[in-house]
Computed example of a mutant assay.
Amino acid sequence: MSNNAQLDKEEEILRLISDQCARRIINTIQEESKSALQISKELGTELSTIYRRLNKFQKYGLLKTTFQITPDGKKSYYYQCKINAINASYRQGKFQVSLAFN
């Protein structure tokens, strides 16, 4: 990954985790996997909002996604946050984000 691409990725991750809804989702799936519907109900947040954030987490490799086949033959996806810690710094006009994974 080029230096500029890495900086863009770090800034996007920083922007994502600065969002209160995203942080609430992270907290909810830190210890155990949950479906988007479970997350939505637990947080009292619209399902579409949950899916938007989960898609962003997936884009940056911040989620572990598994699935189970339901009794009616459909896939049910479960999400767990892979982030254990986030460290961000700002130096000479640039952000640097380092992530510690589970």
Score class of each variant (00 low, 15 high):
Ala5Asp: 04
Ala88Tyr: 13
Leu62Phe: 02
Gln58Arg: 12
Val97Ser: 01
Phe57Val: 09
Ser33Val: 03
Ser18Arg: 14
Leu7Gly: 03
Asn84Phe: 08
Ile86Lys: 13
Ser33Glu: 09
Glu12Ala: 11
Gly44Val: 02
Arg24Glu: 15
Gln80Asn: 03
Thr70Cys: 01
Met1Gly: 14
Asn27Val: 10
Ile17Asn: 06
Lys59Thr: 09
Lys75Arg: 09
Gly44Gln: 02
Gln6Val: 05
Lys9Glu: 07
Gly44Ser: 01
Tyr78Thr: 07
Asn4Phe: 04
Tyr77Cys: 04
Pro71Lys: 07
Thr49Asn: 07
Val97Thr: 01
Asn87Val: 03
Glu11Cys: 02
Ser2His: 04
Gln58Asn: 13
Ile26Asn: 10
Lys64Asn: 10
Phe57Thr: 08
Ile25Val: 11
Gln20Glu: 13
Asn27Cys: 07
Ser18Lys: 15
Gln96Trp: 04
Asn27Asp: 11
Glu42Phe: 14
Tyr51Cys: 07
Lys41Tyr: 12
Ser76Glu: 15
Met1Asp: 11
Leu14Asp: 08
Arg23Gln: 01
Asn55Asp: 04
Glu31Pro: 03
Arg53Trp: 09
Thr70Asp: 02
Ala36Gly: 14
Ser35Ala: 08
Leu63Asn: 10
Lys34Asp: 06
Met1Gln: 02
Ser18Phe: 14
Asp8Gln: 13
Tyr79Ala: 06
Ser89Phe: 10
Lys59Gly: 04
Gln80Ser: 01
Gln20Trp: 14
Thr45Ser: 01
Ala100Cys: 09
Thr65Lys: 02
Glu42Tyr: 11
Gly61Thr: 06
Leu99Arg: 01
Glu11Ser: 08
Glu42Gly: 06
Gln20Asp: 12
Pro71Ser: 08
Ile39Glu: 12
